[in-house]
């Protein structure tokens, strides 16, 4: 049952890391004296880190999985990034010229 034990540990690590990252994000928002820009960066970084943790520990994406799964996630991230980034770029440019 060592297999089971290792997997059990992995879920526990994932949950604990996620909780810590969530707490960190809440803390920078609630704490006094953190500039808005800094807080946003930290919240964003904690969010990305937590997504990575959960992909690794809960969804078991990693070195053991087939390459096509990782490719799929990276390709999805690329296209989502193009769509989100493109939208923000276009609409900000448009907004800036509407005044």
């Amino acid at each position: 049952m060592t297999d089971a034990r290792a997997e059990m540990r992995r879920y526990a690590i994932g949950a604990i890391l996620s909780a810590v990252l969530t707490l960190a994000a809440f803390w920078v928002v609630l704490a006094d004296g953190v500039a808005r820009g800094t807080a946003l960066w930290i919240v964003g970084a904690a969010g990305v880190a937590q997504i990575a943790v959960q992909l690794r520990c809960f969804l078991h994406i990693g070195s053991a999985s087939k390459r096509e799964d990782l490719h799929l996630i990276l390709f999805s991230a690329l296209l989502a990034g193009l769509m989100i980034g493109g939208t923000i770029w276009i609409m900000t440019s448009l907004h800036g010229r509407m005044h």
């Binding site: 928002v29 946003l40 919240v43 997504i51 809960f58 969804l59």
Partner: peptide, 21 residues
């Protein structure tokens, strides 16, 4: 179920914490 948690991380970071930061 795990995917929904991933989306929630985005909502938490962008909508709630991002909105109140």
């Amino acid at each position: 179920w795990h995917f929904l948690d991933l989306i929630w991380i985005g909502i938490l970071s962008i909508v709630y914490l991002g909105g109140l930061a």
